[in-house]
Simulated assay, not measured.
Amino acid sequence: MSDFLLYDYLMIYSDEKYTKKIKAIEIEKFFIEILEFNKISNLKFSKMINDELIIATGLLAESEGSYAFYTLEGIKEINLIEIDIPQKMNIEIEESILEIANAIASKFSWIVDERR
């Protein structure tokens, strides 16, 4: 098992200063059609992997990566995605999450946070 367990989520972001943004509708289409997630609400998606619910959330972060929100409604562009790490992690789930993160990073030329 990797250091993945030290964090509650994995981040995928646009660039070091969070300047590149993608439209919310574009990421929604990618999550639903390509990654086969279900839409929970605006910019929030879920998928079952090995009987564990995986949640991904699209966010709009400031230049240093911080954010605060009460609702994701009305957000039209994002520059950060967080994938929640389930408590019952195993190697298959970890590999699946990394595959999802790398697919997002590849599609949008984003960065998977490797700081673990």
Rank of each mutant, 00 (worst) to 15 (best):
I49C: 05
G74F: 13
A101F: 12
E36R: 12
S41K: 12
S66L: 10
D15S: 07
F108W: 11
A61T: 01
K107Y: 02
K44S: 04
E77A: 04
Y67A: 04
M89C: 02
L59Y: 15
E114N: 03
I97H: 07
A61S: 07
A24T: 15
F30Q: 08
I93Q: 00
I91Q: 10
A105F: 09
K44A: 05
A24P: 14
M11Q: 08
L60F: 11
I54R: 00
I32T: 14
S63F: 11
V112C: 01
K20S: 05
A105Y: 04
I97P: 03
W110V: 00
L53N: 15
I12S: 01
K107I: 00
M11N: 05
L53D: 11
M1T: 14
I93E: 00
K107E: 05
I100Q: 03
A68L: 06
L80C: 12
L53A: 12
E99N: 14
G65K: 02
K107C: 00
D84E: 11
Y7L: 09
L6M: 07
E94V: 13
L59K: 15
L5K: 07
N79F: 10
A56H: 05
L80T: 01
E94I: 12
I91N: 12
Y70G: 12
K107A: 00
F37A: 07
I83K: 00
A101Q: 05
Y9I: 00
I83A: 00
F69W: 14
M48Y: 15
L43C: 04
D15R: 13
Y13R: 02
E73Y: 09
F4Q: 04
N42A: 09
N42S: 14
E26L: 14
N90W: 08
I100V: 15
T71Q: 08
F37H: 04
N90L: 09
A24I: 12
F31G: 01
I83V: 08
F31T: 06
S66Y: 14
M48G: 01
N102A: 08
L10W: 01
E33G: 05
I55W: 06
K29C: 03
V112Q: 03
T19C: 10
N38K: 15
E33D: 13
Y18W: 12
E95Q: 08
D113H: 10
S46Q: 09
F69S: 02
R116G: 03
T57V: 13
L60W: 09
K88V: 01
Y70A: 06
K23R: 15
T19R: 13
I75P: 13
F108L: 10
I93R: 00
S66W: 13
A24N: 13
I83C: 02
E77F: 12
G65M: 07
E62N: 10
V112P: 01
E36V: 03
I32K: 15
T57M: 04
Q87K: 09
E28H: 11
A101E: 06
N102V: 02
E73Q: 08
Y70M: 06
K23H: 15
G58A: 14
E99M: 06
I75W: 14
I100D: 06
